[in-house]
Design a binder for these strands. Structure first.
Lengths: 205, 205
DNA sequence: GTCTATAGGTAGATAGAC
DNA sequence: GTCTATCTACCTATAGAC
């Protein structure tokens, strides 16, 4: 679990990312972060004054990454059906590479709440689903898809992609599958969810 | 926020439920639980030996409630389309009354992991989606709905219902709506999700 | 910049009076 | 059963040597 990388600062950040994501802010220990980084605990305070600031550095970066990846797909300039397929594929690929990210972000937002959330949302880079919402709206008005509520459709897409990762321990506990089987299921899920969505909004000929 | 109820034990449990659900195990403080319960901190240890046991009492009850409610809908003996509608309506009603429940359960499972999950899943009362999965399978084989993967369909239903509650702070941060508007959206969502699912699996005439 | 040692504060748990 | 007072352990943060 130890980290070998160039600068001390990036080793700390990488270690903090691991520990904070797994344990959450409250349960994370500075000692464990230092151990994972392979350095002394005092150094954490030398680079980042305190636990809060270290957490904020990790969280902000994770949130920004999350937002950028999401917005990349939201804003693509392609037809709706293609965009839905691209969204499901790319978003689930992101989640397969970084399965703990959404749960981490969502959970800390839940627990910190209030000011913390407001601070985040006044940043320049935050998730912006409006391009996709607008595009859906246009297709509905043009009568090219079923008359769905665009906001709920976007929520549906996000839900079906992200939830299985957030609820992974629960899911694997209920339907007893090993990790390899779970990953295969998520791979199949891309096609399954895409066709599910398209069937739901496609007009009958 | 203080609690007025009959027995001291149930007041403690109610207070612990509130605090644990909001803060999570690690960030929850015995002092705060005592304050909310309107009793002294020492009493917590008199009734429940330590923080872990108190948490387990709260969590087990929440998990059991969660499983029972879910299974009630999974196992109902009604036609599939009716069951889907009933599932979405009832499950979202449950969530509207207890919005923090799934996030709490899922998050603690994530962080505790391993033995904790195994212990839970060897209990008698755990979520059991098999009746619904089997029912979907039959409809597919009979050619009465589109050939969907039953497991993924159930996952889709759970995802679309639960995710908006788990990710509520994120959601309300992105589309800036107050609490009343959010609740209205969730009310509308029942119909929206039901028709979405039915359209996705209904055969074209 | 990196380490060791330790201060300072807090939270869980216990002891004992009532 | 309920309270007050206190112990003990741990964790963040700082001080200071190298």
């Amino acid at each position: 679990m130890e980290i070998k990388e160039q600068s001390t600062e990036s080793r700390i950040l990488e270690a903090a990312r691991q520990v904070f994501m797994q344990k959450g802010f409250a349960a994370a220990r500075m000692q464990e972060i230092a151990d994972v980084a392979g350095i002394n605990k005092g150094l954490l305070h030398y680079y980042f004054r305190n636990k809060n600031k270290l957490f904020k550095a990790v969280f902000d970066e994770a949130f920004e990454q999350f937002a950028l990846q999401l917005n990349g797909v939201f804003a693509a300039d392609i037809p709706l059906f293609d965009k839905i397929e691209a969204f499901v594929n790319e978003y689930m690929d992101i989640l397969l590479e970084n399965p703990a990210l959404p749960g981490f972000v969502i959970n800390e937002l839940n627990q910190k709440g209030g000011e913390f959330v407001k601070g985040l949302m006044s940043r320049k880079n935050k998730p912006n689903p409006l391009p996709l919402v607008g595009q859906i709206q246009m297709e509905v008005e043009a009568g090219r898809i079923r008359p769905v509520n665009p906001l709920h459709l976007v929520l549906n897409m996000l839900s079906m992609c992200a939830f299985p990762f957030i609820a992974r321990p629960m899911f694997q506990g209920i339907v007893q599958v090993d990790d390899a089987t779970y990953l295969k299921l998520m791979e199949n899920r891309k096609r399954e969810v895409t066709s599910f969505i398209l069937n739901a909004i496609r007009l009958n000929q």
